[in-house]
Amino acid sequence: MSEIKLVFTGSVGAGKTTAIEIISEIPVIRTDVRATDSETAKRKEKTTVAMDYGELTLEDGQKLRLYGTPGQQRFDYMWRILVKGALGLIILVDNAGSDPIGDLARYVDNFRDFVSNNQMVVGVTRMDIASEPDMDFYHQYFAERGIALPIFPVDARSKTSVVMLIQSLIAMLEFS
């Protein structure tokens, strides 16, 4: 395996950069610029336009590379580039966003090909800001579509939470 990488994707402001920052052992390389479109600017001052990059060194010296995709749909060409050859995918959905279920649907749909041969997990962030839709709603969404994936609330600022996402992904990979 030449490059071992995990990709964090998901909606604008869901916490992808924060999640990578909290576990990366190097300062995260960011490509963020001032948000220009009104919708993004409402949510945050700066936004990722190409990728975020962090890494973890494993015991044998190999690097686990952590990539974060841009959240905005107009940069979706980067999604496909970054996900190529990835070990797995972590989708973060901002529950305080305007349409979290729509966001989830869009990302699951976009990465359908990748997921057919790989694994992904979904973390729902900012549930402390917006409690609706609740987790039952997400589970029902998956159940109606016959999707069996780990999905649970996470706090992108919490190391424990982000580690749990990756541990869940590895567990899924082990039995895929």
Binding site: M1, L56, L58, E59, Q62, L64, K159, T160, V163, E174
Partner: peptide, 13 residues
């Protein structure tokens, strides 16, 4: 590889 990643993550907790 999986074992290695989990081991590295456990040092984070």
């Amino acid at each position: 590889l999986f074992k290695n990643i989990l081991k590295r993550l456990s040092s984070h907790e």
